[in-house]
């Protein structure tokens, strides 16, 4: 496969490491509003369980995380059709993360 890196242009997929579903960027917050770890909160545990273990496994369009390990070390969000391997979008993961409201 060829991944069209937004900064470097088309690169062979062998240069990349695959991680999985791009939903992994949406890590839940493990803190309460008063700044304490929500160590006993059931809903936090539930949120992390879903974050850590539950993924969609679509036959078709899939957003996934790829790491350009043999390249510039960018994490990318690649939109790929899992049935045809057609790649329709490649974005820097940091841009996607910011667009989804992640910051610091």
């Amino acid at each position: 496969m060829i991944i069209d890196h937004p900064l470097l242009g088309p690169r062979d997929s062998a240069e990349f490491t695959y991680m999985g579903d791009a939903s992994l960027m949406m890590r839940p917050d493990g803190m309460t509003k008063d700044g304490r770890a929500k160590d006993t909160a059931k809903e936090t545990a539930r949120a992390f369980y879903e974050y850590g273990y539950l993924r969609d496994n679509p036959a078709g369009r899939h957003q996934e995380l790829w790491f350009h390990e043999q390249g510039d070390r960018s994490w990318l969000v690649v939109t790929r059709d899992t049935t045809t391997h057609e790649i329709t979008a490649v974005e820097l993961a940091c841009d996607v993360a910011r667009a989804r409201g992640r910051s610091s």
Binding site: M19, M25, L65, S74, A93, C94, R98, R102, S104
Partner: peptide
Amino acid sequence: EFVRQVLWPDLD
């Protein structure tokens, strides 16, 4: 790199 770029992209 994942933590830095993806989870908290605005950390300096």
